[in-house]
Write a protein that binds this DNA or RNA. Sequence first.
DNA 1: CCTCTATCAGCAGACGTG
DNA 2: CCACGTCC
DNA 3: ACCTGCTGATAGAG
Length: 463
Amino acid sequence: MDQDKNVSSFTRLDILIQYYLDRVTPYVVARWLTNLCLLIVFVVRIISIHGFYIIAYCLGIFLLNQFLLFLTPKQDPSFADDDDHAPSLPTRSNEEFRPFMRRLPEFKFWYITFKAFAISLILTFIPILNIPVMWPVLVIYFIVLFVLTMRQPKLIADQAPAAIKEGEMANYFGRKIAIDASMSIYQFLIAVRQNGENLTNDSGETTSHLMGMFYRTIRMIENGIKPVYVFDGKPPQLKSKELEKRLERRTEAEAEKTKAADAGDGEAFDKFARRTVKVTREHNDDCKRLLTLMGVPYVDAPTEAEAQCAALVKQGKVYGVGTEDMDALTFGADVLVRHLTFSETRKMPIREYSLTKALQGLGINFEEFTDLCILLGCDYCDSIKGIGQKRALDLIKQHRNIETILKNIDKKKYAVPDDWAYEQARQLFKVPEILPADATDLKWTEPDEDGLVSYMVKEKGFS
DNA sequence: CCTCTATCAGCAGACGTG
DNA sequence: CCACGTCC
DNA sequence: ACCTGCTGATAGAG
C-alpha cells in the first residue's frame, strides 16, 4: 500500500534499508526481542539520569496509539455498519476470504516501534530536550491524548471474530436453504407492477407473484441451491396489537388511494396502491401449486414462518435461512443468508451471518441475545423508550437479563411500558410453535414440465 | 458539542435490449 | 455498465 | 380472519 510512497522517493539509502527490512521480516521473535532490548536500554537510561521524562511520555503515548491501530481491524468501506433495528451485529469481514486485516500490520507495527525506540534513545543524548516539566502538565497531556486515541478506532469491542462472511451464489451449490414464502410474495406483489397495477391474466387474476417466484426459484435451482419455502401460519396472540396498527395504516392508505384515483393523480395512486398490498390465501395457494409442479418442497408453519425456518436449520434439515430479516437469528437459526436472490443482477455480495460467531463477538450467550432483541424492539411487545442499540447492549452486558436491568435502571428516566409482556415474548423466541422434525419431509424432484406448461400457460396466461 | 435515540419517508423483481 | 421497457 | 421489512435523513433529548 505505501509501497507507492516508497517508490516516489527512491534513493540508494531507501533501497538499502528496504533490503535489510526484507531480510529481517521472517524473524518475528528476534525482531521483537530487539525492540524489547531497546526499550530496556531506554528505561534504564531514563531512570539512571532522572531526566527526559517528556520524551518517555511521548514515546509511551505514541506506542499506545500504534498498539490500538494494530488491534483495530481494517475498515472495509463496503461495510457501512449494518445493524440498527434488529440484532446488533459486529461488523467485520470474513474468515476465509480475508483473514482479519489489521489497520496496522504486524511488520509495520514492529518497524514503527523500532524507529520510535531508536529515535527516543537518541533524543536522550540531546541535553536541550531535557526540559523540566511539571507532573500535572504531563498528566493532563496524557489524558488528552488518551481520549483522542481511544476515540479513533470506532469501538474496540467491535472486533468480533468474523460473524459475517461474504460470498457468491456458487458457494451455495448443493445447499438447502429455507425461505419465508410470504415475505417473497409480498415483495413481488409490490414490485412487479405496470401502470400502477399488478400483472394479470385475461380473467383478471394477479400473476405478479407467480412471475417473481418462478424466475427466482429457477435461478436458485440453476445455481444448485435447493430452496424450501415456508408459509406463514396464523400469527401468535401477542402480535395482534401490532397487526391492528398495520391494518389501520392500510385502510388509511386505501382511502388515500381512492382519493388519488378521483383526482386523477397517477403517481399518488401508485404510491398508495403499494401500501395496500396484502398477501391473500389465493396468492399462497397459487404459489404452492407452482412449487409442487416445479418439484420444490414447501412447509406450512404453524405460526411464524421465520420461526419454522430457524427450526429447520436447528433440526439440520437445511443449511441456513435465506432472508433479509434478522429475526431469524433471534429464533435460533445459526446461519442466515442475506441478498441470496439478487446478488447476480445487482452486484450485491451474499452475506452469511453466523449466530454463534456473532454471540462470541458480542460476548453474550443466546438467552442474553434474545433479551437484547426484545429490548431493541420486536413485534411481540413494546420496548423501553430511550434505550436503543448502544444502551441495550451495554445494559445486557452489565446485567445479563431483563429482570436485573429492570431492577437497576432509573425508572423515571426510562419509562417501562405497563404490563410489559417481555417474558411471553421471550418464550415465543425460545420455544416457538414449530413442526417437529419428522413432520416435514423435504424432497426435491424433477419438475413436471407438462403440468407446469398447462398451469402457467392455460390457466394463468403465461407464454 | 457530541452521542444516542426516535421518527418518518421511501422503497421493495427479473429479464432482455440498445 | 447503464437506462429502459416488458413480462401478464 | 389475517400476513414485512430495511435504509437514510433528520430532529430532539441528554
